[in-house]
Amino acid sequence: MNEISINHILFLSTALFFIGLYGLFTRRNMITMLMAVELILNSVNINFVAFNKYLFPERLDGIFFTIFIIAIAAAEAAVAIAIIINLYRSHQSIDVEDATEMKY
């Protein structure tokens, strides 16, 4: 069986990065925006694991970084969702178009 080359994996991670960016810029729902950020983080994770496995298998720096990113992403999502809940209480909506009191 042929092994998948690193190019394929890097293509996947880069595509995921830009899908995440696109989602973050176009979506108007706060929770969905958060999900888009998670997509970008996952693309970074794939990058780290792929580089570690294919290019530098003797040291585990990349894998460790991935584990930490997953943990931090969970913490970030927890705080963000707490903020969104609090915002929902005052605005009765989680659409970003409704939270535009401060501009310029």
Partner: peptide
């Protein structure tokens, strides 16, 4: 205003740190 500011802060800081992370990777 406070919760609006907090949301803007967390989403932009999360976004900036993802860019930073992509750079690091």
């Amino acid at each position: 205003q406070s919760s609006e500011a907090a949301f803007k802060m967390i989403i932009s800081s999360a976004f900036s740190s993802t860019l930073l992370l992509f750079g690091i990777s």
